[in-house]
Design a protein around this nucleic acid. Structure first.
Lengths: 250, 250
DNA sequence: TGATCCGCTTGATCCTGATCAAGGTTATGG
DNA sequence: CCATAACCTTGATCAGGATCAAGCGGATCA
């Protein structure tokens, strides 16, 4: 696999914006640790739709998403697929200490990742406890998110699922400062209806219908197919079925 | 909360069987690290049905299950609940570096856990990299399991869900050496029909019906309500919908 | 300028699993 | 020993979402 991967034209001087350095693995590293990370890193980019890795492949690197969006998913023999994670800028890809990729990773938009060769990275981790600590915290966060998503998949209605997905995407955009946190939030859907369906355990028709229903109810306003305006975030949160206090935006 | 917790009558000399020492956090620790772990540990037990901790509570300890079974779950205001994990002997409870419990933990059978006060444990972790490494590996395993479960919740039919649960429980019993791995496997269900339903995102009636259906199809044989005999594991695995190669028993 | 494709929407119908309801089994306790 | 309460099974009916099907609108390309 992994045909058609191209090494990125990403300028190494853009290193300053490398999420490894600033937001992911190494946010608490000392300067000399950063230097050592720099020594083993390189960039790669993928076009929308390209696979980054297939479940079962040997992974010879770990990586951090610089820009773009990728999905983590599983597919059954008969074609049913379930997305198990959404990889956004600053998210980490890979398993130190493991050889085989457990899930498929596919770029859904143009994607640039910052890679570290696995062996040197693991050695660096062994000699730099703060990296391991940071990675443990990130993994615990991912585990909590995965478990929260299990409630969505197992117990929520189609309408609640859609509202939950929109709320999660909205929260991310707030965190990234792309939209105000209060009223008139605006949001670009990074996923096709089918990808949303795979994320939510629904069919694409149901996704489409429920989005239309939320639109008709005035919970969201659609501009085109992919741009969503949320007039009142509280109304959207009420549709998720979650406890409103301590909800997704806090 | 946490009323009615009793300190265990567990004999400290049984320390030799403490899973922290042998299977969980410290399987690769040096003897002096084990001594330091011993210095901050204590046992607790809970009766079937008792809560260990509620989501949002402050956790002043981390722990490892010694014996019995607990569940990790989430409940919506309207009562819908989703189990997000099953805690069996040797499983770890808690989040170093976090203060609040993210999910409810409830004992479903009589339960004994080996606790470590959180602060000293975190200090020990900071000074003993192998503990952190071990914990990272365990957390990555849990994350993979959680993600595999997302496929079950999102895409499998009721019958496949039941078969998947039975396969997982069967695999555990094989690993623990309770039953032969090949033919005529036998298995005690540790959960009520309702708990299975909460794990699988179903109702208890559907669970009951699908178990009856698998029985009628000869995939399983029931002795009483809780004891299951699996005449041919391959037949059960075929019912899970999973790829049979590399399936749950390997 | 069409022709084609892809992503999306909407309608009609079906089916799986939820819900409502009744009764059976097993364990516990007076 | 029976009474009670969990826990479980089974039946009848309902409904939410899947499936099958048709068509729309905006890209891309010859």
């Amino acid at each position: 696999m992994n045909t058609a991967i191209k090494d990125a034209a990403f300028n190494p001087r853009d290193c300053g914006s490398c999420p490894i350095r600033h937001r992911a693995v190494c946010s608490r590293c000392e300067p000399d640790e950063l230097d050592r990370l720099d020594a083993i890193k390189y960039y790669r980019s993928y076009e929308a739709g390209q696979p980054v890795i297939w479940a079962g492949d040997h992974m010879e690197f770990v990586a951090s998403v610089v820009s773009g969006i990728a999905t983590l998913s599983q597919t059954m023999e008969d074609g049913r697929t379930q997305m198990v994670g959404l990889l956004l800028p600053s998210d980490f890809i890979g398993r130190p200490g493991r050889d085989l990729a457990p899930f498929d990773v596919v770029a859904v938009s143009d994607l640039t990742v910052c890679c570290f060769r696995k062996k040197p990275f693991e050695e660096l981790m062994a000699s730099t406890p703060s990296i391991g600590t940071r990675l443990l915290q990130m993994t615990l966060d991912e585990l909590d998110s995965a478990r929260e998503w299990m409630l969505v998949l197992g117990r929520k209605t189609a309408r609640e699922k859609i509202a939950s997905l929109l709320a999660i995407l909205a929260r991310r955009d707030v965190v990234l400062g792309k939209t105000p946190p209060t009223s008139g939030m605006s949001l670009d859907l990074p996923l096709t209806r089918e990808a949303m369906a795979d994320y939510l355990g629904l069919t694409l028709e149901t996704v489409s219908r429920q989005i239309s229903a939320l639109k008709k109810a005035g919970v969201i306003i659609l501009e085109g197919k992919r741009h969503v305006i949320i007039p009142d975030i509280e109304v959207l949160l009420a549709e998720t079925g979650d406890d409103v206090d301590g909800g997704p935006l806090t």
